[in-house]
Design a protein around this nucleic acid. Structure first.
Length: 597
RNA sequence: GCCGACGUAGCUCAAUCGGCAGAGCAGCCGCCUUGUAAGCGGCAGGUUACGGGUUCAAUUCCCGUCGUCGGCUCCA
């Protein structure tokens, strides 16, 4: 959530409703495990709230139902939420049997942390809120009374594990997630939205539309593209490659492994070994699977002496990289262990750097727009005070160049303080999909580390060697991830230019098969991706199948069409366009493809 | 990796208390020859994820491994 929006949210009634619902839930949980439940924290979050507990046994879905019932009783009791400010000592006494609260109280008393463990500047006053029998250490705010909560407008969603204070060295607590709204209608609408999101889950659609698969025999997080998904990906890649060529990029290719020494020089073995797979031993030399393409592109740069006249050089590669991701984080196409980046590295003179960043940013936005995305948000990540290479002063100019590029591109951006990579500041572009969800795709990263480490140089006008600047960038990010986002954005109903099958020819009876095949051949000549459904099924069944496969056009051909050399066009929206000529249809599709409609 | 849930045919799911593993869809074969979202009939499809244990008997109970899902942590 953006900073301004977050403040608005904290001020809202909804925020109070959720916070108070969390307290009511905590009371119900305490009652379920009298004397045994240890409570941690329970803040409102986007669309709901959670509360963390340390309990004697795992909670079941049935527990959630009985908790909901008890919560409704508590709400019906019309208890006020009463605030009281107390001293640290009083708090310690009051929560003496609640170790997590004690830790929070110590934090509050020492200053520096709020009750959620978030760092704060001032030492806060310690307040508690009480409703009915339940008292919680809490800053608030809350609704005045449980009667301000709608018993029909909340729902407990699921239980999940969560580390105390987000630290994996600390105890694992049970987190109950819930959602709460002001009206039952709002709740219903939210639950509907969750269902919609589930329907367009790319993992579901990947199976239904036969786009990709993951095989246990191959391994988790390793994607296998089937022909349909492969076609969408190919079209996306072809489009991007053409744009890159037009945009002044040159294509390079690099291998999947490289010597340990390469990764030592690049710094990856120092900074990033945890994300890399164990080395292979080849004739006594250690080789690593590449987690990034940059060292290879750097070697291409270094393969000859570069003049200032050669710069900028823009090396692009659809480079497949392998990164170790912990098993629990893998997720469909969105988080995988092997993926292909639409990667490029720009080498330029310092004076060219601002212009190159401008170009890349604009290029990136244009490509994303071509795929149908409109709503962008940029994040400028600045130096992490603990994890950075080089001299802090060196970070200033490139950070400023990135910021100015964002200003010039006139897209909304925020600063992500301390979120930069170790080697330089970066811009991340996020976009909103059709459901309003935010995804990070493009990244534009300044790098003053690798040119130094690999001792990159170009010969200047003055005949002296100079150090080039280097910019990493990936626009779609990874093809796997991008495809996942694309699938969910379009709910599998790709626009005509991307659809793996643009039209299915549906002969009404067997005697129309020859005509259907003849038309298909003409459409293919016109550059269309066409299937013919030759099964001896009813036309209705064929329409249904094409409809479920989300094919943009269903072309029904029977006696009338064969006679008139036409086709009857049905859209996947259900709209029937009636019969048109073959050439008119080809024209229509070609236009849509050209315009990316 | 951690916490929890789950793993039965290609897919979606069923199988009483531990007692011969089943349905729909998809596939294949046949009949029907069809006008805008499922025509009818038949056939085939299984080491119940994998390995071990308990038992006369395990899809079912226990242990381990692998995998999936929801989160947490992580994502240079």
């Amino acid at each position: 959530m953006a900073a301004g929006k977050k403040e608005q949210y904290v001020e809202s009634t909804l925020y109070r409703v959720r916070h108070s619902t969390a307290h009511v839930m905590a009371q119900a949980v305490m009652e379920m495990f009298p004397g045994e439940a240890k409570i941690a924290i329970g803040p409102p979050i986007e669309d709901g709230f959670y509360y963390d507990f340390d309990l004697p046994r795992p909670l079941t879905p049935e527990d959630l139902e009985s908790l909901e019932r008890r919560m409704r009783e508590i709400i019906a009791g019309e208890f006020a939420f009463e605030r009281q400010v107390i001293s640290a000592d009083e708090a310690r006494q009051m929560f003496s049997d609640q170790p997590y609260k004690i830790e929070l109280i110590e934090g509050l008393d020492a200053g520096g942390f709020d009750e959620y463990g978030e760092p704060i500047d001032e030492k806060p006053e310690i307040s508690i809120y009480t409703q009915d029998t339940f008292t919680d250490l809490c800053r608030g705010p809350h609704v005045p009374d449980t009667k301000n909560l709608n018993p029909e407008a909340f729902k407990l969603l699921n239980v999940a594990g969560a580390y105390w204070r987000g630290d994996e060295a600390r105890p694992m607590l049970q987190r109950i997630y819930g959602t709460a709204w002001e009206s039952a209608d709002d709740l219903e609408q939210y639950l509907w939205k969750l269902e919609e999101a589930q329907k367009r889950d790319h993992r579901r659609l990947g199976k239904d539309l036969d786009l990709f698969t993951v095989s246990e025999a191959v391994g988790p997080g390793l994607i296998l593209w089937s022909p349909r998904g492969g076609m969408v990906r190919k079209i996306a890649e072809d489009y991007c490659r053409d744009e890159h060529e037009r945009g002044g990029y040159e294509f390079v290719y690099s291998p999947h492994i490289g010597k340990a020494h390469l990764w030592e020089t690049s710094g990856h073995l120092d900074w990033y070994q945890d994300g890399m797979y164990a080395p292979l031993d080849i004739e006594g030399q250690q080789y690593y699977l590449k987690p990034m393409n940059c060292p290879f592109h750097v070697q291409i740069y270094k393969s000859r002496t570069r003049s200032y006249r050669d710069l900028p050089l823009r090396y692009a590669e659809w480079g497949t990289v392998y990164r170790y991701e912990r098993s629990g984080v893998l997720h469909g196409l969105l988080r995988v262990r092997g993926f292909t980046q639409d990667d490029a590295h720009l080498f330029c003179r310092p004076d060219q750097m601002p212009q190159e960043i401008d170009r890349v940013l604009e290029f990136s936005l244009n490509i994303l727009r071509a795929f149908g995305f409109k709503d962008f948000q940029a994040y400028l990540s600045t130096r992490n005070s603990e994890k950075f290479a080089g001299d802090p002063a060196e970070w200033e100019a490139p950070t400023e160049a990135l910021r100015e590029a964002l200003e010039r591109a006139q897209i909304p951006y925020e600063i992500d303080e301390g979120e930069a990579t170790f080697y330089g500041p970066k811009i991340d572009l996020k976009l909103r999909d059709a459901l309003g969800r935010e995804w990070q795709l493009s990244t534009i990263q300044f790098d003053f580390n690798l040119p130094e480490r690999f001792d990159l140089a170009y010969v200047g006008e003055d005949g002296q060697e100079h150090r080039p600047y280097m910019i990493h960038r990936a626009l779609l990010g990874s093809m796997e991830r991008f495809m996942g986002v694309l699938i969910e954005h379009y709910a599998g109903a790709f626009p005509v230019w991307l659809a793996p099958v643009q039209a299915v020819l549906i002969p009404i009876a067997d005697r129309h098969q020859a005509y259907a095949q003849q038309v298909a051949a003409q459409l293919k000549d016109g550059g269309l991706r066409v299937d013919v459904d030759l099964r001896s099924d009813r036309m209705n069944a064929k329409i249904r199948d094409a409809q479920m496969q989300k094919v943009p056009y269903m072309l029904v051909v029977g006696d009338r069409e064969a006679e008139a050399e036409q086709l009857a066009v049905r859209l996947r929206s259900g709209e029937d366009l009636g019969a048109i000529s073959i050439s008119a249809f080809i024209e229509r599709v070609q236009t849509e493809v050209r315009k990316h409609e």
